[in-house]
Design a binder for these strands. Structure first.
Length: 626
RNA sequence: GGUCUCGUAGCUCAACUGGAUAGAGCAGCUGCCUUCUAAGCAGCAGGUUCCAGGUUCGAGUCCUGGCGGGAUCACCA
């Protein structure tokens, strides 16, 4: 807000005049005045009282007097302790509202000429999208909208983890047990069908593993394990035999899969064939992936999220190696005796990181190097945002470091939009233990809940079934999005399925409802919204509303700077709350006189516009009626 | 164990990056629909900000040391 800058520069000048000391303008602190005190904005004067060598109260009064003298929009001031509270004239706020109401793009910046590539979603193609992806998609989409509002040119992209052992498991299980069923024959969404076989594989592997556990091999591995650190430790702790075995089986599962399992061997063989371009395997892979993509697309459509491009890991997993080898030539990396190539990232306070295996194959990191380069070649972006969970914080630090080592200028623009894991009331989300929440299932739930709540209120009896369904989707999915976006992305959050579909209190519905009320009044008013303000005073709540509207600008900027939609969520909720208060205190259509009525229509309309903008930045739709 | 991170009302989250008497929602209790949408509004109650020190005009926020969660330390992605 310009006003704060204006206050700062004037305050700095006054301090200089009064006390003959330069004070760094940017260090002046200006806050909104707390409700319990008189005033609109507050200057913290403690820092000046040292310079002035006077009590904070006296310093505040001196500065306050000068400010009132200098700036005609400041009508009053008071000093409490070291806080100088400044009151603005009604005229100032009314003019402010006049500007806001006329500026269609209020709060949004003009183009800043910078390009952003924002990656989000990042599903695996062997199973359906789950709750974790919903946080990712909701967050990524919203940050993209917020950056657009801040003047960036944003390109949204997806990364598909479409290769590797996991998809081979699904493929193998389908081959063995699927009897040729397809999404069509089974009337199932493609990603769910493929996911079904991923689960099936795990079940079969589990059975196989259980059988193996009584074999001589198993016993000898168990004895070995008891001599090693984990097993030895547990044994010394005096755990019971059955406990020990359980622990062993858990820790050995991976090794079993790689060394003893027949199914494991088959899956690995399939992966090898895939890597060697075996036509049959490749064809099956393509077929099953296309099922999955169809399924994903349905979910994306329903959530209203989109991508300019889908990067497939399979297209890049071999590349990156060249870039690494080039770096090796310039001695930015080093080769170990076994032939593997490594990066020394100690200067970045990271470890040694392997980039190419001794058999010449590349890794996750290597692959991401190639993807980053491909994106830069295409978009020449200034900023590259990766929406990925915080368990990969280390990976992205390493990616950035390696690219910086390679002197890639774009490396500095890499930003990991890291978000915390979602906890369920029952504990952590683990796909293997079946405690995941399926995305499609969850969406159905919230929409159904919206339907029930809406029908109970009985306000939309004249809606067609299409209109009604559209409304349920807006309400249900909006509720879900708001529930997630309302918390700071970096924080781990608890997801309570019950609460996520809650339609009372601090929710999207609350805001959508305020918006619908406004539209209802505007419909009844049935004229063009006035463009001129003909009143010169107002109620305290009206003043509060204008101040809140005015803050939209700074909020959008702060959200863009921090990549943090929760700021928008909180702002929008707060504005809706103020509007509801206003609604209950003031009559709009039945206002005491025509000028007041027009003013309130204009004010309500501006609130509606900002509420809609705010919700849209979160990816939430508004509705004219509900 | 090393590194990183978190700990705020019964529960879920805030606190403008060091500012005033730590705020909302849910759950609980009171009221308010013959007036523009009650999916709302007004109110009550609920706190040793994990503990102990320190830094300063001022600490939930910064520093040190504990305690307790979590992530990560793969030639998986």
């Amino acid at each position: 807000m310009e006003i704060e800058e204006l206050l700062k520069s004037n305050t700095a000048q006054i301090v200089k005049d009064l006390y003959e000391t330069d004070f760094d303008q940017s260090k002046i602190i200006i806050n909104e005045t707390r409700k319990e005190f008189e005033g609109d904005l507050t200057v913290v004067v403690f820092p000046f009282s040292k310079i002035a060598k006077k009590k904070p109260e006296d310093t505040g009064i001196e500065i306050g007097e000068k400010l009132v003298e200098k700036l005609d929009f400041i009508s009053s001031f008071n000093v409490v302790k070291g806080f100088l509270n400044l009151g603005f004239t009604d005229d100032y706020w009314l003019k402010r509202l006049a500007v806001i109401s006329q500026d269609k793009s209020f709060g949004f910046s003009n183009s800043n000429g910078k390009k952003v590539v924002l990656e989000y979603c990042g599903p695996n193609t062997n199973k359906p999208i789950h709750l974790g992806h919903i946080r990712n998609m909701t967050l990524g989409f919203s940050v993209a909208e917020i950056l657009k509002a801040n003047g960036y040119e944003v390109h949204k992209v997806n990364i598909l983890n479409d290769r590797g052992i996991a998809i081979c498991k699904s493929m193998l299980a389908w081959q063995k047990f699927g009897q040729g069923e397809t999404p069509e024959t089974n009337n199932t969404k493609g990603d769910h069908l493929v996911g079904k076989y991923y689960v099936k594989f795990d079940q079969e592997l589990g059975k196989e593993f259980e059988n193996w556990q009584n074999s001589a091999e198993a016993n000898s591995e168990y004895s070995k394990w008891l001599e090693e650190k984990d097993g030895k430790k547990s044994k010394e702790e005096g755990k019971e035999q059955s406990e020990l075995k359980k622990q062993f089986h858990k820790s050995f599962k991976n090794t079993y899969f790689n060394q003893y399992s027949a199914l494991g061997a088959e899956a690995s063989e399939m992966l090898l064939k895939w890597e060697n371009d075996d036509p049959e395997v490749r064809q099956l892979w393509k077929k099953m992936n296309s099922w999955v993509y169809d399924g994903f697309q349905q979910t994306f459509d329903r959530l209203g999220i989109d991508f300019e491009e889908h990067y497939k890991e399979s297209d890049f997993y071999k590349e990156g190696k060249n870039m690494v080898e080039a770096g090796l030539g310039e001695e930015k990396f080093y080769r170990k005796e076994d032939g593997s190539i490594w990066a020394d990232l100690e200067e970045y306070k990271l470890d040694q990181k392997i980039l190419v295996r001794n058999d010449g194959t590349s890794l996750y990191l290597t692959q991401d190097i190639a993807v980053a380069q491909a994106r830069y070649n295409k978009y020449k972006m200034d900023l590259s945002i990766y929406t990925v969970g915080d368990e990969q914080n280390y990976h992205f630090k390493a990616l950035k470091a390696v690219l910086q080592k390679l002197d890639k200028a774009y490396a500095d623009g890499i930003h990991h939009l890291s978000y915390g894991m979602i906890d369920l009331p029952s504990g952590k989300m683990k796909s293997r233990e079946g405690t995941v929440v399926d995305a499609d299932f969850l969406i159905d739930e919230v929409v159904e809940k919206a339907r029930l709540a809406t029908m109970e209120l009985g306000k939309i009896e004249d809606f067609s079934s299409e209109q009604a369904q559209e409304l349920f989707e807006k309400i249900g999915i909006g509720a879900l999005r708001f529930y997630i976006l309302n918390v700071n992305p970096q924080k781990r959050m608890l997801f309570d399925p019950e609460k996520s579909v809650e339609l009372n209190g601090a929710t999207a519905v609350f805001i959508q409802y305020a918006y619908a009320r406004i539209q209802s009044v505007l419909r009844k008013y049935n004229q063009d919204v006035p463009t001129e303000i003909k009143v010169n005073k107002m109620e305290p709540i009206e003043r509060e509303l204008i101040i809140a509207l005015s803050g939209f600008e700074t909020t959008v900027q702060a959200a863009g700077k921090d990549f943090d939609p929760s700021l928008i969520a909180q702002y929008t909720y707060n504005l809706a709350k103020l509007f509801n208060k206003f609604w209950n205190q003031c009559q709009i259509l039945n206002a005491e006189d025509e000028n007041v009525k027009e003013f309130r229509i204009l004010l309500s309309n501006s609130c509606g516009n900002i509420l809609e903008k705010g919700l849209n930045l979160l990816g939430i739709d508004t509705t004219e009626r509900m």
